[in-house]
């Protein structure tokens, strides 16, 4: 990988309804561009612009000889295996275009071992000063999903963190199947609980659904109301948009202390992982 004729393309899902969906991908793109590791850095989305089909025209074949494609996805699945290769016309790990440009299809972000460090760092940051040995760490995944591999990836991460013996307990919980997020009180025995969604971006799930399941959504609305900052309706709709829910940790609830993190994919450290996945491509071939 040389920086003067290699480009990076970050591909992600995006959304037609939720602006938070593409925000981390745009931020990682900007950050990697700033570092000048590649001659050119672009991103493309299934549901937003530029589209995956637009991506075919993003890199000038005169100046860019190689394009590393890194899927900003939590795991392999329908999008990384079917949609992205089809839309980009990829024929396997390496594809040579008619103009000679070579496209290298890298592993998704969530597969990288550094994800574990990122989870640990994030869990530590949002519950600063709370001893891990007296804390249960909950990693949230969708559960029943188009993409069953995301649950497997979350399980793998929990396993790895558990084996470090840092936390009193490390559990996988799901939104739609047991063990359920909403059962966190029953599932955990420690006073301190830290919850990290294992998603690539924030959105309705992390802003509203999980807080409601955890029982912290109402607490936040009540707090904002009593502080005179919002009416009930405003508190509900506007805090969702601004990620206010993450700014009031830890929540005191039923004699427990609960800290709730933004989705793991919003961590700036994902930019390093994206670069690593591109570097890994050549290391593995």
């Amino acid at each position: 990988m040389t920086s003067d004729d290699s480009a990076l393309l970050i591909v992600a899902h995006g959304s037609t309804v939720n602006p938070a969906s593409s925000a981390p991908t745009l931020a990682h793109t900007t950050e990697i561009r700033r570092r000048k590791v590649f001659a050119d850095v672009g991103c493309a989305f299934w549901k937003e612009e530029p589209s995956l089909r637009d991506a075919l025209f993003l890199f000038d074949s005169q100046s860019v000889r190689e394009v590393y494609v890194v899927p900003n996805f939590i795991s392999e699945g329908y999008f990384t295996q079917t949609v992205v290769p089809r839309e980009l016309g990829l024929k396997g790990r390496t594809t040579k275009r008619s103009d000679g440009q070579i496209w290298k299809y890298c592993e998704p972000v969530g597969n990288h071992p550094l994800m574990t460090d990122l989870l640990l760092r994030r869990a530590h940051q949002i519950a600063a000063g709370i001893p891990e040995s007296e804390t249960s760490l909950l990693i949230v995944a969708h559960g029943t999903d188009l993409n069953e591999n995301s649950a497997a990836a979350a399980k793998r991460e929990a396993e790895k963190i558990r084996s470090l013996g840092k936390y009193a307990a490390v559990l996988n919980v799901y939104m739609e199947e047991p063990p359920l997020v909403s059962d966190w009180r029953k599932l955990t025995k420690t006073r301190n609980v830290v919850v990290v969604p294992f998603f690539i971006s924030d959105g309705l799930h992390s802003y509203e659904d999980i807080p409601a399941l955890l029982g912290i959504a109402n607490q936040l609305s009540a707090r904002l109301r009593s502080a005179g900052r919002h009416t009930a309706r405003q508190a509900n709709s506007s805090h969702a948009a601004r990620g206010e829910i993450f700014r009031h940790n830890p929540y005191a609830i039923d004699n427990r202390s609960l800290s709730y993190a933004p989705s793991i994919g919003t961590d700036p450290g994902v930019a390093d992982i994206i670069i690593e996945q591109a570097a890994n491509f050549d290391a593995e071939s």
Partner: peptide
């Protein structure tokens, strides 16, 4: 503002744009 549109315009100008 208009993601990808300048790239597509340049590809079109240089005769490299495929339409589907």
């Amino acid at each position: 503002f208009y993601s990808g549109r300048l790239d597509v315009f340049v590809a079109w100008k240089s005769g490299q744009l495929h339409t589907t």
